[in-house]
Nucleic acid binder design. Structure first.
Lengths: 249, 249
DNA sequence: CGTAAAATTGATCTGTCTCAACGTGGGTGG
DNA sequence: CCACCCACGTTGAGACAGATCAATTTTACG
């Protein structure tokens, strides 16, 4: 299974068991709708009518909000395999926020196409759980920005991205590509670019992570997780085996 | 219409037109499931199995997360008429976070009961849109905590709560009850209680808002909204008339 | 009334921001 | 193929919003 829809299927399969038929339907949806390649451009602007649902096959998009005076907050990433919440189609008039990106391969599903997908119970369940996880991520970010120090924030974000990319096979031995600027990391974590820089150096100095040439290299994942207070539970909604095991101990 | 379910119905009606039959079904769901009254207590703890859906008929609950060292972030409020996202029932094992409250009147809907509700298309739509709005609120909070000053944050939160309470008839001429402690406001806005206090006094000094005896009094709503950069668009998912009008101008 | 929680006030400290300069690498046009 | 350039990263110094610590007053309530 190495088609364009491969990562998408792989991501959804983490949230519900998908039959071969389900997978075929997903492949078809991905190929029917036009594939678009975009680079450093807004994909969907706030205020447009929301009649297409975005799926990311390759690359990284993010959603952000600009305040009148230029301050910016990045609200979430869509990594390869991620898709928007089907509920966005229930709000006819406006996309609440905007998207931008590095080079990426995306699919815009029509309302009709989404309806067909939702007729497959497993797919519907997987999409709902995936959307639910994205909500959990937003909450985690709120905790991050609200309560954690710059050091913890950055470490936590790196752990999260690592887990999410690992789930679709985009990490190789605790290393992965991250085409983000330090300024963009700053707008994600509500830190100045300067302070992101200093914090990254601190992480490197402590031999936890290095980030150079858009490549993240985690040297000591356990220590990083501990230092950042990272707990991956919120990223998987049904693999709760660890928790159950703990409860039995 | 002044039953216990009144505010709930009123809230949902903002997101989709409800027939009399729909309203009857909601009333029934609210009365069938046991009504519980709780005060300063956790309603649902993280880790419990998620087999009931919470509806708030009266009072104020909030969802929070505690970090190991005692830091706390409040993640969202459930005001009178609000309910949890039906998707929470799709994650069988754990409630991701916890709830706590002031005195409140709540309903715990069974899975069965929720399924019956979702068989009514209008209700299903209203619930989905309501849940979608709650997501939008979380994103707005992320922007709040990430980008805005203490002064703006507090003003923004007050505006938001005012709008949400007004939607269910719990404001009287720009005044409303808010049974929150300054420390709780701090944990909501990621500020120390001391600084919340000082900021509240600043708001009062500027004749924008006063907050005394758990009563909020907005003296100049227009000026407050302007000072806080508040735009209520994210609270209503289908009343987009203003935007349309702007677009035509 | 008494007592504990909440609000208020003052003094001091600090994480992070801002401003400003400088280094660096990769793409582009001459 | 070189020279320039511009976005990005790095470094230093100083400033400030908000935290922390520590009283003191006020309010809610049994």
């Amino acid at each position: 299974m190495n088609s364009a829809a491969s990562r998408w299927i792989r991501r959804l399969a983490r949230f519900a068991a998908l039959t071969l038929e389900d997978q075929r339907v997903l492949e078809e949806a991905a190929s029917t709708a036009g594939i678009r390649y975009a680079s450093h451009e807004n994909v969907a602007k706030a205020g447009e009518s929301a009649n297409r649902l975005l799926v990311v096959l390759e690359g990284l998009l993010y959603r952000y909000r600009l305040l009148p005076d230029g301050r910016r907050q990045i609200l979430g990433y869509l990594l390869a395999g991620d898709m928007c919440d089907p509920r966005e189609l229930l709000v006819p008039q406006v996309v609440e926020t905007m998207y931008a990106l590095g080079p990426a391969e995306i699919v815009m599903l029509s309302v009709h196409s989404v309806q067909r997908l939702e007729r497959q119970p497993n797919i519907a369940l997987a999409m709902a759980r995936h959307a639910f996880m994205q909500q959990a991520i937003t909450r985690e970010w709120l905790i991050n920005v609200g309560q954690r120090s710059a050091f913890e924030r950055l470490g936590h974000l790196i752990c999260e991205i690592h887990e999410r990319l690992a789930a679709v096979g985009l990490t190789h031995d605790h290393a992965f590509d991250l085409p983000l600027t330090q300024a963009e990391l700053g707008d994600t974590l509500a830190l100045s670019a300067v302070h992101v820089n200093r914090t990254l150096m601190e992480l490197r100095r402590l031999k936890l992570v290095s980030f150079q040439n858009r490549q993240v290299l985690i040297h000591d994942y356990a220590a990083l997780q501990a230092a950042a207070g990272f707990n991956p539970g919120y990223l998987s909604t049904h693999e709760v085996r660890q928790v159950s095991l703990e409860n039995m101990a």
